[in-house]
Design a protein around this nucleic acid. Structure first.
Length: 609
DNA sequence: CTAGGGTTAG
């Protein structure tokens, strides 16, 4: 139950969180504050360094406490710096006073400690210190970089520190702070390494921020940061995930120019990209290419291909790949079976999928929650909700735990069946057993309400979701926009479009297409065309569905010349009309007494003649 | 350090 609320904390506010570059910060008299103590500064106090060092080394904290109480943590730290005590001991003291006395040090003291550790080559300690720093980030990058550069740099201490700082930000999910550090490192001339940049790239790819990946990559090359195979593979992966295959191939060329050969990982990455983009012929060509280059496909290569063929509705080909991998002496693993089982399920071959589940068990491979989720989805698609629901209980009996995807699949199925009560009781169940609903869970519920035309309830649910700290995503908006447009409330949908821009979401084809369709339904073709202009202005080029919606809109208005002009336009752009295009036009043409030809090029001829 | 499987719009 409370898991939802964990995400409710307000986003940290950068502008108020960081201390300013106040000159007072440099004053040793105000470097710390301790809520429970009333330390006074006694600069004249003299310390016996060897004794203090010993106390720290032997962890005699209580004795140390009495000494610190005579002065304050900051003065003593300063003293330790000046007396060139061992960096390790200063660090121990630093951490102890922070933890036990609530001491807060200024950025100069923090950086000086980092410097001492760097010069002692105590890199693990720096890493750990920065890791805990990144969790709270009390100082901005701006003042850290400034302090480090004021301290000067012996060797490459600053570069190493900054490298580890960026790494620490990434590790703690602070990608934007990491990026800012990356930029500043360039400004200050600190040299970063692949050890921090690669994890940063990996996180950016995971977040889908591929534009940023591209610019960071270019900058890494420009700054001559020691890139490695991982750098290239990660960038290639990011580009493939968003379908930028030409750019991905360019990076493959870059990698060769840097003396690295594409590996099985590189090939798998690109092959997967093509598979997910539905370009199996490309995937196939690359498979042949890698074999010709004596780069042996591994289990993952075959798993990728099996999944790809299944998505391409070519289960026969997928099965052939499954056989082929075994001929090559590679053992199918759980992922292999899951891919094939899922492929069979989404292609309606549930019985075969269940048979394969038995077979994998027979081979000593235990079905996992992914296997069950695929099968539950298979049952749901066949509207066998009872069986799907029973399989949820099965998961528990097998000693496995259903996860958020298990529940989302079932909730969606109930919603599509008009059984919103059952959908909500499943949400209750997941809360009871500690599975956190995510945005997709809400989307499934929201789409359920929309299906029965209850956009009001759907929007209430979206509000509730935001109250639980979950942000509406692109899918949420698309569901609502589409529902409003279909209800004839396109104006309201446009307001949601504005909201998307406000919250920084990039509307997809679906968003615009729904709006164009909505305006056409209301007979407002001018507004529909304005949406089209807007989408192109925002960098979304009309796709096949856009053209279908436009053509349908004009056909319904009886403006066949306009529809025909759009048809020619889509052909000129290399977009191939699909079945829907054909169906939209066929009705119109039949009405006008035209007999359609099966030839795809038919539509080049003038309809209105 | 990097590649593969399961849910939501259509």
């Amino acid at each position: 139950m409370n898991c939802l609320r964990l995400t409710q904390f307000p986003k940290r506010c950068v502008s108020t969180r960081f201390p300013s570059l106040d000159p007072k910060l440099n004053n040793t008299k105000t470097p710390f504050s301790s809520p429970n103590s009333t330390y006074t500064t006694l600069n004249s106090h003299t310390f016996d360094t060897p004794t203090i060092s010993q106390l720290i080394a032997k962890q005699h904290w209580s004795k140390l406490k009495t000494i610190v109480k005579e002065t304050n943590p900051g003065s003593l730290l300063q003293h330790l710096f000046n007396s060139e005590a061992q960096p390790d001991l200063i660090l121990s003291y630093f951490k102890w006073t922070q933890k036990e006395l609530g001491a807060i040090y200024n950025v100069e003291q923090f950086c000086r400690l980092l410097h001492l550790l760097a010069n002692a080559k105590n890199y693990n300690k720096i890493r750990a210190l920065l890791d805990s720093f990144a969790k709270h980030a009390h100082y901005s990058n701006s003042i850290i970089f400034h302090s480090l550069s004021v301290l000067g740099s012996w060797g490459c201490a600053n570069s190493i520190i900054v490298d580890m700082l960026v790494w620490a930000y990434v590790k703690n999910g602070e990608i934007d702070l990491a990026l800012e550090g990356f930029d500043r490192a360039g400004d200050y001339g600190f040299r970063l390494s692949a050890l921090s940049c690669n994890p940063m790239l990996i996180s950016l790819v995971k977040e889908g921020r591929i534009g940023v990946v591209e610019s960071v990559y270019k900058e890494m090359i420009r700054r001559r940061i020691g890139v490695n195979v991982v750098t290239f593979d990660v960038v290639i992966n990011g580009l493939c995930k968003v379908g930028k295959f030409q750019k991905a191939e360019d990076v493959v060329e870059d990698m060769k120019a840097w003396g690295f050969s594409p590996s099985v990982i590189t090939y798998n990455t690109v092959i997967d990209g093509y598979c997910k983009a539905g370009k199996m012929y490309k995937a196939d060509a690359l498979l042949k290419e890698m074999v010709a280059k004596r780069i042996h496909p591994n289990e993952i290569t075959f798993n990728i291909l099996i999944d790809g063929f299944c998505r391409d509705e070519n289960v026969t080909a997928a099965k052939k790949v499954f056989e082929e991998m075994q001929r090559q002496g590679l053992q199918p693993n759980v992922v292999t079976y899951n891919s094939l089982i899922n492929g069979l399920c989404i292609n309606g071959k549930l019985d075969e999928a269940l048979g394969l589940q038995d077979k994998m068990s027979g081979m000593g491979l235990k079905p996992n929650v992914v296997t069950y989720n695929a099968l539950i989805n298979g049952f749901c698609k066949k509207k066998m909700l009872k069986e799907a629901r029973e399989m949820l209980d099965d998961i528990g009996k097998r000693g496995l735990a259903p996860n958020v995807i298990t529940f989302n699949t079932l909730i969606d199925a109930y919603g599509k069946a008009g059984r919103m009560d059952d959908a909500f009781s499943l949400r209750g169940m997941m809360l009871d057993i500690g599975v956190c609903p995510n945005v997709s869970t809400y989307n499934c519920l929201i789409v359920g309400f929309c299906r029965e035309g209850n956009v009001k309830e759907a929007r209430k649910l979206a509000k509730e979701m935001e109250g639980n700290g979950l942000k509406a995503d692109l899918v949420t908006y698309n569901i609502l926009v589409d529902a409003l447009c279909k209800k004839g409330e396109t104006r309201k949908a446009v307001r949601l479009l504005d909201e998307m821009f406000e919250v920084g979401l990039n509307p997809s084809h679906l968003t615009y297409n729904a709006l164009i369709d909505g305006y056409f339904r209301e007979g407002n073709s001018t507004a529909a065309l304005n949406v089209r202009t807007l989408m192109e202005k925002k960098g979304r080029r009309a796709n096949i569905v856009t053209y279908n919606v436009l053509i349908k809109g004009f056909c319904n208005k009886g403006k066949l010349e306009e529809a025909n002009r759009l048809l020619n336009e889509m052909l000129e752009k290399g977009l191939i009309p699909n079945r829907t295009t054909y169906e939209i036009l066929r009705d119109e043409m039949m009405e006008k007494g035209f007999i359609p030809d099966v030839d795809g090029h038919l539509y080049n001829v003038s309809i209105s003649s």
